[in-house]
């Protein structure tokens, strides 16, 4: 184990990638729920602005990863070996998610146009747009899931298992998918709150419509809190299993990882668990409770933001620890 201070670009890239994919999928679920419960118009009002934040985030993630590679100007070379390299697959999936998700976001943004402007689009195109949008959304979601899988497999790859014993456990893909779900749903909670407050601040929106948005927001936030509680439950089952694996595995590297987690990285490890449990566990319970009531809405919104901040901070420390488990030069098995 080592201090992975050179890996901040990878940490940022992975967190942004997982968060974006998670947010995209959670947004799709929330949109689908809003359509079923009210109307497409209300669903668009709820989700479209939140969607537009994902694109710039993905571009930021791409810029961050350039800090990890020695020759970023040769970035396209990374697509040369998708046949056997999970890293090449990850990069390809990230790019495809950015492009397909971007195309979807542009089409979705058309719903924000005024009715007069929308009428300028010819009728046949207007009829086709929702179908193309849904198709693109499905493809982007699947590509996003493949991106998270590829990102996890870079580290969980059996070809690395004999050296990177700290990563060679099912805990690695579980961690990546739990992060995706937690960060994605909670950031979306924050996005929906911001969107609602923005709508409320505008005078043009009808009170009836605002009331629907408020009810939808509470429903969605409740869904986010339940998802968080479920996901943190998965993580807190996976962690002890992983620690037992480290303790039981005879490889000296694993003993070293356990030792470092209880000495040099003990504070990191404590904070990682504490923040994740506080954000996705304790605060999520309060959020679920408050979302049932129409009072104390400001407190509810504050809790949603706080839960996201806690989970994000916990994930940053968690990823730092993840790279700290990278075996440095290991010529021998000692």
């Amino acid at each position: 184990m080592n201090y992975p201070d050179n890996e901040w670009s990878l940490i940022i890239f992975n967190i942004i990638g997982d968060l974006s994919v998670g947010a995209f999928i959670a947004l799709g679920l929330a949109h689908f729920y809003a359509v079923r419960k009210h109307s497409t118009q209300q669903a668009d009002l709820l989700s479209t602005r939140a969607l537009l934040v994902i694109g710039p985030l993905l571009v930021l993630g791409m810029l961050a990863v350039f800090g990890h590679v020695g020759n970023p100007e040769r970035a396209f070379n990374m697509l040369s070996n998708v046949d056997t390299s999970w890293l090449a697959r990850e990069v390809a999936a990230y790019g495809a998610f950015l492009v397909i998700g971007g195309a979807f976001a542009i089409l979705q943004a058309l719903t924000l146009l005024s009715p007069e402007r929308q009428k300028q689009i010819d009728q046949a195109t207007r009829g086709l747009l929702p179908k193309v949008r849904i198709l693109l959304a499905w493809i982007a979601a699947l590509v996003g899931i493949f991106f998270v899988l590829s990102a996890a497999m870079i580290y969980y790859d059996p070809r690395l298992a004999s050296r990177q014993t700290g990563w060679a456990h099912i805990y690695t893909p579980i961690l990546f998918f739990v992060d995706t779900g937690l960060l994605g749903s909670l950031v979306l909670g924050v996005g929906f709150v911001a969107n609602y407050l923005w709508l409320r601040g505008r005078k043009q929106i009808e009170p009836a419509s605002l009331a629907i948005q408020e009810a939808l927001l509470r429903d969605v936030i409740k869904g986010v809190s339940f998802a968080s509680i479920g996901l943190i439950g998965v993580l807190f089952v996976a962690i002890p299993i992983y620690l037992v694996y480290l303790g039981a595995n005879p490889n000296p590297l694993n003993a070293q990882i356990l030792l470092m987690l209880s000495t040099d990285f003990a504070l990191h490890w404590f904070l990682r668990l504490f923040l994740a449990f506080t954000g996705a566990g304790v605060l999520a319970v309060f959020i679920a409770y408050l979302s049932e009531r129409s009072q104390r809405q400001r407190l509810l919104y504050l809790m949603v933001v706080l839960a996201f901040v806690c989970v994000l901070a916990g994930e940053v420390i968690g990823r730092y620890l993840f790279y700290a488990r990278n075996a440095t030069l290991m010529i021998g098995g000692m």
């Binding site: 990890h68 590679v69 020695g70 040769r74 990374m78 690395l160 050296r163 990278n326 290991m330 010529i331």
Partner: peptide, 27 residues
């Protein structure tokens, strides 16, 4: 000329053979 210096081969080699060149950004 093809390498972009992603370090992945370093992570994979059991015996630490690949060496990263900071200035050139390659392995």
């Amino acid at each position: 000329e093809q390498c972009i210096g992603c370090h992945y081969c370093e992570w994979a080699c059991l015996w630490g053979a690949p060496v990263f060149y900071e200035e050139q950004g390659i392995v």
